[in-house]
Design a protein around this nucleic acid. Structure first.
Length: 1041
RNA sequence: GGGCGGCUAGCUCAGCUGGUUAGAGCGCCUGCCUUACAAGCAGGAUGUCGGGGGUUCGAGUCCCUCGCUGCCCACCA
């Protein structure tokens, strides 16, 4: 094979044309660009179907010739339920950040998705895998700001418009790095459907979604405590905060009563917040403080008077039992403030976490500097009672690692636990800080008592369920819970379902706004006169309240996850009008989501919430009549199954991180071993529940596997060359035909079953192919990539190469007549046909796992003129394609056992490898017949020169026994007696133990009474066999002496 | 404070609803350049299945308990 384009392959496959060793670098690039250029995996928008003809299956495959499209998919697959729709297999690629570069985790995710996609596609489904990238608000803005910094500039040197223009420039230049890498890797995605989350089309959908939610009263704006990142100077959601265990200090501070008659000591870990204290709370049942409730305290350092209030939140067990209340800088204190509005709140920190109290001596100080100064002054005043070490969890920003400061600020929220309003009249119009007009619209305080809003926490389980007909009466969270509870969405592994449910049942309102410049800007306009907020899908030029034109658009952008949460339906053309677009009709819901645990809440949960909420309003088509009808929750879900993949760690099981310097660059590994080998490594390690320790040694092993396949191909081509030289026409099989055999002069015609004279090894390899393809289907249906990979590996190497190819040499290498007028020896003819057929099928079986290698060899097999554009468009092997019989399997197993026994004996006797020896054999009639018929196998694979059949059992030296035969190698040298005795003694002990265990069981009446018959039967058989072996070993041992 | 995993051969991992004498790859030992492949072929050694207890005719597999070891969630000053 040369580096020519695939269409111009050499006219004939030839062993000489293939390099001796497999070199992935020579072929991968070629095929990656071929697949891309041919738009092989692009799926056009299906034709809208008129009622009564709902299927779109045939139109969706994109104009390929497909002479052998699979007529039907294997029965019992998960998509049997997908009645009335095309056999569509749709997946959304978790969109990588535009700032991203491919890492080994992506590689795992993409490998799994690609295997599923290719397998489904080859099994006859319309497989659509949709790629795209995420604008990644914070990450991208940080990236560009860093770039500006290197130029000595900062964001604030630019206008908002100029800065975002700058980000777009950056995106154009660097934003495709990760998709370029994907293209190189040959991921079989539909590039014609590639999107960017800030594309015009998707931006419109985002605005539509926002406006809809606002009109339903589910989006509100208000002043609440949010997680504030003082470096990014924006609010971040709970999910973007990590909690770190740190040793901090607990400061006990004495607050004197205003009238000087006493004091209360409070405890705090953040003494600087006392500047914003507006009360001290004690538990109403706390006898120590009961008499002080309602009295005033003089707040040290400021001399402000603050009340002592009663609130259940104060825990008498903790610290002194009295807690200072800072409503503007602590979520719990904020909640207290809600219950005691009279105490008010005082903000003391600015956006950068510096003290913002003009006139105060601490004004302008950084929060930690202020803490030191305040502690020092309190100490000087004698008000610092004590300082204790105190283990605590500190909230830290995921992005910047800055300590998060809870801060009161005006933000937009999505009310996830609120029942949507039917009309727009009730729509939220909170427009002033801290003044929300609907009790339910609270965020963190929402679940505390007194807030009065709907909360899943205080809703009985049975009321939380979703039932048809109550769709619009259910909250977003209720629908998301019901979708999973009712089994419309499943998780693999299943334990993630529980995690999801826990989280969803305790969910808080979602802070949607970010104080950034890069992202989807919130479609709300503030009137500078009457203060009314106008939320609109279109640009607003005048206030909807007072009509004046002095209005400004809200400065905030939406959380990145808002737009990605909409993707399952916006990628299919949802535009807010609730019409069933052709793509939505054909492809929604998607079947499969493959993603990591780390974005289960960020993304998966949000997709479920937003998709079920919006898609319930989009009609669907009735499977029978084709008429439009209302969608149920079952069809509103964004996907049917969520497969959560493992985390890839380094070889020492360490988490991969840049700071640790143990980053595994997939491109580097790929350069070293080839994409196919890396893919196979990841697939074979993909077992549920465990993280993957990425071990290069293993990849090395799979590169050897690729090489093995490569050389098997060379062997095949060599034989095809020989046959051709001898004048025979070789036509490779038609992929997807049940199987192929040969007439005397033509290889490649199809017959329904194997010809009578088909040799044992060929019958056997077909039977194995039957079993293996069944196993692979089963494994992939269960997402057991590891089991599928290992079944194929074992088959290809351990059976096809180690046994079949070796046996096939019996028929091929010595037996092709050179005179074309003679007919080909029937053995040779059928063997050539079988060989080509099995090999071709094995390539198809392997193709989803190793697409490059299989594409290359498969094309070579057809002399560069294959029946379809790609092996990826052929039919995936089905068990029913291959004849199988148990008789064949046992016969072959016996031959293998016999060959292995002779090999072992020869090894023990140190017979030179090239020397053939006679053997003696004692066996039952079946084995004798078998051996007689297949002496040639023994001759070739075990170097047996002659067989002496013995009627008496063999117990002498140089003997090996199994339950069904004794075999001895007749040789001048005798076996090493001490070593043999040791081995036999060991065996004897083993058999004895096994025998005892088996007999104990069999003599146990409870066992025979309770165990299932096949187990008893099996144990009986085993017991008999072990008895035989025991006896044989015992006499062998005796014979030694 | 809750919750979820993992602990099986020197290493990395399989072992499905309990059922015959626990497997694979790598590594290790021995012999082979056998005309597809030395990135190979053939043969071989290696396990108190984390400890203890229980259920059962039968436990790596189920239950309890203890021990390491990861991860997730959480508003206790």
């Amino acid at each position: 094979m040369s580096d020519q384009t695939p269409q111009q392959n050499p006219a004939t496959p030839s062993a000489e044309a293939l390099p001796k060793a497999y070199d992935p670098a020579l072929i991968e690039q070629k095929w990656a660009s071929y697949w891309l250029d041919q738009h092989l995996f692009d799926v056009p928008t299906p034709e809208p179907k008129s009622p009564g003809a709902p299927s779109i299956a045939s139109s969706a495959m994109g104009g390929n010739e497909e002479p052998n499209r699979a007529p039907s998919r294997p029965s019992g697959g998960p998509r049997e339920a997908e009645k009335g729709r095309a056999n569509a297999f749709v997946q959304l690629l978790p969109p990588p950040n535009v700032t991203g570069r491919l890492h080994i985790g992506h590689m795992l995710e993409h490998t799994q998705m690609d295997i599923l996609t290719r397998w489904r596609r080859m099994s006859g489904d319309t497989a659509v895998w949709i790629p795209g990238t995420d604008h990644a608000g914070i990450a991208t803005q940080m990236m560009v700001e860093r770039q500006l910094k290197s130029e000595g500039k900062s964001r604030t040197d630019f206008s908002r418009e100029d800065f975002t223009a700058r980000v777009w420039e950056w995106k154009q230049e660097y934003g495709s790095a990760i998709t370029d890498q994907m293209k190189r890797l040959g991921a079989s995605v539909d590039w014609s459907r590639e999107y960017f989350t800030m594309d015009e089309r998707l931006s419109i959908a985002v605005r539509e979604a926002f406006v809809h939610l606002y009109e339903q009263g589910l989006i509100y704006r208000g002043a609440y405590i949010v997680n504030w990142d003082p470096i990014l100077q924006t609010a971040v959601s709970d999910l973007e905060v990590e909690n770190e265990e740190r040793m901090g200090k607990l400061f006990h501070i004495r607050y004197e009563l205003a009238d000087g008659t006493g004091s209360i000591t409070v405890a705090t870990t953040r003494p600087e917040t006392m500047l914003g204290d507006t009360a001290v709370a004690v538990n109403p049942s706390d006898a120590r403080y009961k008499h002080l409730i309602g009295r005033k305290l003089r707040l040290p350092l400021t001399q402000r008077e603050i009340p002592i209030i009663a609130d259940d939140w104060a825990n008498p067990e903790f610290g002194t039992g009295a807690v200072k209340v800072t409503p503007a800088h602590d979520p719990n204190d904020f909640a207290i403030g809600q219950r005691h509005p009279e105490i008010g709140s005082i903000s003391i920190l600015d956006k950068t976490a510096h003290i913002d109290l003009p006139g105060s001596p601490f004004h302008g100080l950084d929060r930690y500097e202020a803490r030191e100064r305040i502690v020092a002054e309190l100490e000087a005043l004698g008000l610092l009672v004590e300082i204790k070490d105190h283990p605590m969890t500190v909230p830290v920003s995921q992005r910047t690692s800055a300590v998060i400061e809870p801060r009161l600020s005006l933000q937009w929220f999505l009310a996830v636990n609120k029942i949507p309003s039917a009309t727009t009249e009730e729509a939220g119009n909170t427009d002033r800080a801290g003044n929300t007009d609907r009790a339910g619209n609270t965020n963190r305080a929402g679940n505390t008592e007194g807030a009065g809003g709907f909360s899943p926490l205080n809703t009985p389980q049975h009321e939380r369920g979703f039932s048809p007909g109550t769709v619009t009466r259910s909250s977003i969270a209720q629908k998301a819970i019901a979708a999973v509870e009712q089994g419309h969405i499943t998780f693999t592994p299943d334990n993630h379902r529980k995690t999801y449910m826990e989280w969803m049942s305790n969910i808080h309102d979602w802070c949607l706004s970010r104080q950034l410049w890069w992202g989807h800007r919130i479609p709300a306009w503030h009137c500078n006169a009457c203060k009314k907020i106008t939320v609109s899908r279109d640009a607003v030029h005048a206030c909807s309240g007072c009509g004046i034109t002095d209005i400004t658009q809200d400065a905030d952008v939406l959380d990145t996850w808002f737009s990605s949460g909409l993707l399952p339906f916006t990628v299919f053309g949802w535009d807010g009008s609730n019409t069933l677009t052709p793509d939505l009709a054909a492809f929604y819901p998607t079947q499969q989501l493959v993603t990591g645990f780390d974005i289960l809440f960020f993304w998966v949960a949000r997709m479920i919430m937003l998709s079920t909420h919006f898609m319930l309003d989009v009609p669907t088509r009735d499977a029978g009549t084709g008429e439009l009808k209302a969608r149920t929750l079952a069809d509103a879900v964004p996907f049917r199954n969520v497969y959560i993949h493992a985390l890839v760690r380094d070889a020492d099981r360490q988490k991969i991180s840049k700071t640790k310097g143990n980053v595994i660059d997939p491109i580097e590994i790929i350069t070293k071993y080839g994409t196919d080998a890396v893919r196979f490594t990841l697939a074979s390690q993909s077992s549920p529940g465990t993280d993957i320790a990425f071990n290069e040694a293993r990849t090395e092993g799979y590169r050897a596997f690729a090489n093995k396949i490569w050389n098997a191909a060379r062997f095949l081509f060599m034989n095809l060359d020989r046959a051709r030289e001898a004048g025979y026409t070789i036509t490779p099989p038609n992929p997807g035909a049940p199987f192929v055999t040969a007439s005397s002069s033509r290889v490649g015609s199809t017959t329904p079953e194997l010809p009578d004279h088909t040799p044992l090894e060929s019958r056997w390899i077909f039977a194995r192919l039957h079993a293996v393809s069944a196993e692979v289907h089963r494994a992939l249906t269960d997402y057991r990539f590891d089991e599928a990979a290992s079944a194929i590996y074992q088959f290809f190497w351990g059976e096809f190469c180690d046994w079949y190819l070796e046996l096939v040499k019996l028929r091929l290498l010595f037996d092709i007549p050179v005179n074309p007028s003679l007919s080909l020896n029937p053995d040779t003819a059928v063997t050539l046909a079988s060989l080509v057929t099995v090999f071709e099928a094995a390539l198809r079986l392997l193709s989803p796992f190793m697409p490059f290698l299989t594409e290359e060899i498969w094309n070579a097999l057809y002399n560069g003129a294959p029946p379809t554009k790609s092996i990826a468009l052929t039919r995936y092997p089905q068990p029913s394609d291959f004849p199988s019989s148990d008789l064949t399997l046992t016969a072959m197993a016996t031959m293998q056992e016999l060959i292995a026994a002779v090999r072992t004996l020869r090894k023990d006797l140190a017979v030179p490898e090239k020397e053939s020896t006679p053997i003696a054999l004692h066996a039952d009639a079946r084995v004798l017949a078998l051996t007689g018929a297949h002496a040639d196998m023994l001759g070739r694979l075990a170097r047996v020169s002659a067989i002496e059949f013995s009627t008496a059992p063999l117990t002498g030296n140089n003997t090996r026994s199994t339950p069904s035969f004794d075999v001895a190698v007749i040789y001048e040298r005798q076996i090493d007696i001490p070593a043999e005795r040791e081995r036999l003694t060991k065996d004897l002990a083993k058999y004895e133990k096994g025998l005892q265990a088996a007999e104990r069981q069999l003599n146990n009446e409870s066992f025979t009474a309770k165990a299932p018959p096949h187990i008893i039967e099996g144990l009986r058989k085993q017991s008999t066999e072990t008895r035989t072996l025991y006896d044989k070993t015992k006499s062998a041992l005796a014979a030694l002496d």
